[in-house]
Nucleic acid binder design. Sequence first.
DNA 1: TCTCTAAAGCGGACATTAAC
DNA 2: GTTAATGTCCGCTTTAGAGA
Length: 726
Amino acid sequence: MVIPDEDVRPIWCPLLSNSLVDHIVLGRRGELGVLLVPSKKGFVPDKRGLKCDLWAARNIRQIDYESCKICGCLNHKDFRFCQFCGDRGEDSGEVSIDDQDLKSYNAKKRILYLENMLNNKTYDKKKVSLKKDLESFLIGRAKNLTSATPEDIRLFLIDRDMKGKTKIHDLCCPFLGDKKFKDCSCPCRLASGTVSSLASQLKAIFDSFGRKGEWTESGLIKFGNPVSSTIVKRYLEAVKLEQAVAHVPIVQAKPMFLDKLKKISVYITEQLNDHMLKPGKRFVYLRDRAFFTLQFFAGDRASDLGKCLAQEVKKLTDSEALLFRHTVGKTLGNGKINEFVISPVSDKLICPVENLNQYVSGAEEMDIDLSLAPQGEEELLARRLASPCEKNPSNAQRLEPPLGSLSIQCMDMPLSSDSPPWVCTPPRVPSPKVGVAGQTKLVVDTSLDVTSIIETKQKVQEYNTETILGINSTEPNNRIYNTESNTTIYNTESNTRIYNTESILEINTEECNTESKQEINNELMQEMQTEPIQEVKTKPKSLYRSQEIKDTNISILQTDQSDGEIESKIRLTLEFDEPSKTKKAKLESVCSSSFKMLPSHVHLNIASGSKQSNNIKPVKVNGSSKNKINFIGDKVDIRNIKHSSDSSNYRKIRPRKLIQGKTENEETDLNLVNQEETRNQVRNLENTDSVNHPFMMQGSFHQGDDRFRNNSGKQMCSKFINSHSL
DNA sequence: TCTCTAAAGCGGACATTAAC
DNA sequence: GTTAATGTCCGCTTTAGAGA
């Protein structure tokens, strides 16, 4: 038996010592070459040295064991305290001195264990390293963490800045904007994002050191976090500006689309068809194919999926779908879990369910039991599913080249999925009686009769509440299947997910052919054809929220935003080589070209959601003096109407930041609004496409918005659109 | 293994709506 | 009128992965 002699000796150490007949020292702490460690070249002598003394014992005496009455685990026959469940057996309950020591020991051991759990995280190790650097820098200035000032921090950042690798070309440099060229005399600095990140880490270091709060400096009194000071903030701002001026390009992640997933799957399947393939490689291929396809359709983060254990995956009894339940991950834990259902897709090649099943059955054929950890490994084999994203070095094998032959470059990131699909949202169903419908909700239905919805307020209410999903009325842990759309809603206490795998966008709605609908359409078409496009008023940029794109109808686009804002908003490629276009034409071009892969019945709502809140709702005269509407002629005076409740059922004045002494609303909103005219305008612009097209894509979303699952980001958006445009 | 970097998570502030 | 839930923006903080 080989025993490590650690700083904190285990509780069973005395017991073990008594049972040993003979022992020798194999190596002392720090000694090199005592152990052989695995490497690509086989087992090689350890170059790091032992972390503690290593002993070898032999001739262990027979120890008499006794089972614990509570948990059944084996303990020494004279045990007074079960090593496993803590039961004290038939003890009287009096706390002896020994028990106190034992408690103290156990507490100490547990604290050490918990501390290690935190300190072993990569980020924490990095902070410790940074802290050391900072301290040694401060020593050079005769300072320490207690006495460091904002100026010290700025100098430290400048010191680090000199070690950067990002070329900041001078404006006169011919290589301005060229990231690759590094032979000119322009300086290399840290990228602005890195400096920000560095500052955040420094701030966290000072916070944990006890120097929290804003930096305050008044005469000799100086306290707070020096990183929170204006000096450091201005430094960061200046660095960002400098690099923006120097045209430092920001490299963005390369998304992986469905076509690439298919190529990977084709490649792996071809390899698997080779009967000469060695079992080890076969296992890797099976595992990686399952991983790639699962990650693509689950929208799961690679690292989260990599941490998935076999027992976290359940096969639903009444369908082929799989239920995943992640409890550990980047944002999981702490009471937060990620639970979702993966349904099969028709294309077996990329079907995540099919591929996972093949992985499991293939492993079984190779006598690899996925439910048991292999000898010598602590983790279940299923954990090794993570190989494509595991950090290097990893004991898990990687997918081997030549992926390049299939146009799959190794630089492609694994499917980054800190991101959600763009979900289908229901139309905001309008009604001549109740006006603009409420907030959009997630809706899955195969046949929505828009006509009937429009007709009655009751229908509108039904439509706009979650009752249509049956979520509220459904008992927890019931599944609601919508077989036609191949979409599963899984309702649990912790969260409700709508999981769409394949055809959520292929939902069709009955064509509306009633008179009222037709009338609206006719009016609208007429207006669109005859009404001149309003001239865009030029207003200061700061008056507008960045997400606002005025007007919701793509066919008569107009905007107050600059080209850059439009581009950043839509985040899709513009045709820069084309002759310059007007803003309207450019936006039209973007909308028509970039989204052309969308199915024809999908309407992309590029207007912001907040647009709705700017609309005038129909006036409800309910006699309340507080809600009394002041008419001036045929117009409504909205100046004194405050937002309080729904009873003030018309325009609200939204307090905003002050701009030159006026609120944004005062500056931009009309005080007098033609009630009927505006309502019609709203109805037409806001809802027409919704009526014509049953579903629209939500154009903006919040990162981390739970409606889009835990994560939201552009990678998944692009992926999702791509997969559903087939 | 460490450094650098891009990407994304998180939560506050503010705004809005539905339901009661 | 109150409350819970939803929607949007933004700054701060944390994380993962590439590459030296």
